[in-house]
Structures are given as C-alpha cells and as structure tokens.
C-alpha cells in the first residue's frame, strides 16, 4: 500500500468510528441513565435486550443493515449501501447498546443516596439525569472507550455494508483482511499495529482522564 493510501484508510476509520460513537453516545447515554435511575413496567425486558445487544455479532448487524439498505431492500431508495454512511449506521447499532448498558451500570453503581440527594434538592427529571451522568462520568467514559475500541476494530459489519471499496469505504480492518488475503502479511500486520496504537492512545487519554478524576477525588 502507498503511504498516502494508508493515511486515507486510517483517517476514514477514525471518522467513521468517531461519528458512530458520538451518535451512539447521544442515544445510549440518556437511555442508560434513564434505565439506571427509574423503574417501569417491562424494564427487565428492555435491560435483557440491551445486555443481549451488547454482544451482538457484528456480522449479523451487517447482514441486517445490508438487507435494509440494499437496492432491493426497504431503504434501497436512499442509495446508502457501500457508503461510509452505511458503515456508520451499522456501527451505531453496535455501539449504542454498549454505551447504554455500561452507562446503566455506571449509574447504578452510584449509591442511591446521590439520587435521593438530587431529588431532595429539587432536581427535575432532566436535571436529575444530568447530575447523575456527571457523577457517574468515570464509568461512562470507560463505556465510551469500550465502544470506541469495539467500533474501530470491528470488521464484519463494515466489510458487508461498506464493501471495502478503495478510496471510498476501505478502513483499517477491511484493509488488513485484504492485505492478508493477498499474501501481504507484513502490510496487514503493520496496519494492525497502527490500529492497536490508536486504540491504545485513545484508551490512555481516557484512562488519564479517569485517573485524574480519581486523584482529584482523593486530594
């Protein structure tokens, strides 16, 4: 691979993953907070569903999104199959349950006393969610890190719905598959290293943030 191509692939990976995780955060964090704070009828079912979806096989997600977006599928008119947008849609489906589930755990891990304190101080439902999210931020950030790691290293779904098209939908993971299949193990391994380095950097930033939090907390 040309150096320029490598950068292009890395850049697209980062773009797709970042956009997916950001949208996933917008959907997953409020959902998780709500589930962590309130009880309602059918909550068990919803929670069971989210926990199941946290382990969704990416390939399954890929197939479903593929069928939806296919020219012959219900959303075929949008012409989204084999575009970065399709990859983002599949990634959102993958990361949102993770973000919701881990946010829920983080919120639940916070003692009930915080909820009661905020309620006693007169928090509206929305203010309550914001307060608890802020309080549980450490746990939520690790959820974001987990989601980011999963999204950027995912290959099954993005291969199916993105199509690994050169200069268009080729990301690091699909490029690795291609390099390996064509016998360029070295190139595949190098890209794999870049992938690991990015995951590592990203997690280090997050961990640094969390550690910082904890240190401040102990001062």
């Amino acid at each position: 691979m040309m150096t320029q191509d490598v950068w292009e692939v890395i850049w697209l990976s980062l773009q797709v993953t970042t956009v997916s995780v950001l949208i996933g955060m917008l959907l997953g964090i409020p959902t998780g907070t709500f589930l962590g704070l309130y009880t309602f009828r059918g909550k068990r079912l919803v929670v069971a569903l989210i926990y199941t979806c946290m382990g969704l096989p990416p390939v399954l997600v890929g197939v479903v999104v593929y069928m939806l977006l296919s020219r012959y599928g219900p959303l075929g008119a949008l012409g989204l199959l084999f575009t970065p947008e399709a990859m983002i849609i599949a990634q959102i489906v993958l990361v949102t349950p993770i973000l919701a589930g881990l946010t829920m755990s983080a919120v639940q891990a916070k003692e009930r006393a915080y909820w009661e304190t905020a309620k006693s101080l007169g928090a509206s439902p929305v203010q309550m969610m914001l307060t608890i999210v802020k309080e549980a931020r450490g746990g939520i950030w690790s959820g974001v890190a987990a989601a980011y790691g999963r999204a950027i290293s995912e290959v099954g779904a993005v291969m199916l719905v993105g199509g690994n098209i050169e200069h268009h939908t080729r990301v690091m993971t699909t490029a690795i598959i291609l390099e390996t299949r064509t016998g360029n193990f070295t190139a595949g391994l190098q890209l794999g290293l870049v992938l690991l380095a990015i995951s590592f950097l990203f997690n280090s930033f997050l961990m640094a943030g969390v550690l910082n939090q904890m240190r401040n907390g102990r001062r």
Binding site: E116, T117, G122, E135, Q213
Partner: peptide
C-alpha cells in the same frame, strides 16, 4: 409522579444522617 411532585419537593429541604457530597 416525579414531575407532579416537583413543586412540593421544592418547598422542602432534607438532611440525611450521612451526607452524600457530589464529586465537585
């Protein structure tokens, strides 16, 4: 409901046996 109770809630102040301080 939570929202309907809010006007009542905001007339009251509460201190529990153990203070829970937010991380701020």
């Amino acid at each position: 409901s939570y929202s309907k109770g809010l006007p009542l809630q905001r007339k009251m102040g509460f201190v529990a046996q153990k203070p829970s301080m937010f991380h701020a």
